[in-house]
Amino acid sequence: MKRWEAYTLPLLATVALLLLWHWSVIWTHTSVFPRPVDVQRGVIELFSKGLLWGYTRDSLYRVGVGYGAAVLLGIPMGLVLGWYPTAAQTTNPVIQILRPISPLAWIPVSVLWFGVTDAAAIFLIFLASLFPIVLATMDGVHGAPGMFVDAGRNFGLSTPALLSRVVFPAALPRIIIGLRIALGVAWLVVVAAEMIAVDSGLGYLIIDSRNAGKRYHLVIAGMLLIGVIGLCLDTGIRQLEKFKFLRWGFYHE
């Protein structure tokens, strides 16, 4: 493949898709669905109104607090459950039942407990991120080569020291994959939670633009922003993989 193709091919594909979108709107004579140019207008409108900054900040704040709490609690929990088989066995049925309950199914309970507030959304995000983090950490502990653990024991490490100096670093690459998945789920959940349980944020922007006068160009502009921010979050967390002390865990042959 030639070098110029690396730039022109994606450009061509994008242009083709935009044209297809543009012409299908025109051919179908739809009055509600926006053309790409309308969406562009929508993006500009959002930026100039200044609403966008506030909504983005609200969404990011909720994700930050809920996800942060899940990380702080989930990693130690996963380490302990991964290390002590009895603890894992004991809690396993409860975890297995709670895990597949869509975090969004908690919305009524969350609203009952916290009202229509930030705390309701934060609670949902916390729930949604906790399980992937705990499970990934447990998985990482189980996957830590016995050789490393034996070596740590051999040097006379106490159990807490063994967990923090050997098991945790050995599990870290797997934990980071879990953190990435959890962040993705958190971003998915915050949007949904904001559509139902609160009245600010990017999810609210979308549902509100639709309900208040079917302004679909704003709906799609909002979706694009959600995509771009989600991509930024994912790219951000992927930078972790590049740390020198972590590189061993992300080798591809």
Partner: peptide, 15 residues
């Protein structure tokens, strides 16, 4: 295109 579409929460497509 895939990378941009992927992080758009499926639920944002509800409208």
């Amino acid at each position: 295109l895939l990378q941009i579409l992927r992080p758009i929460s499926a639920l944002a497509w509800i409208p």
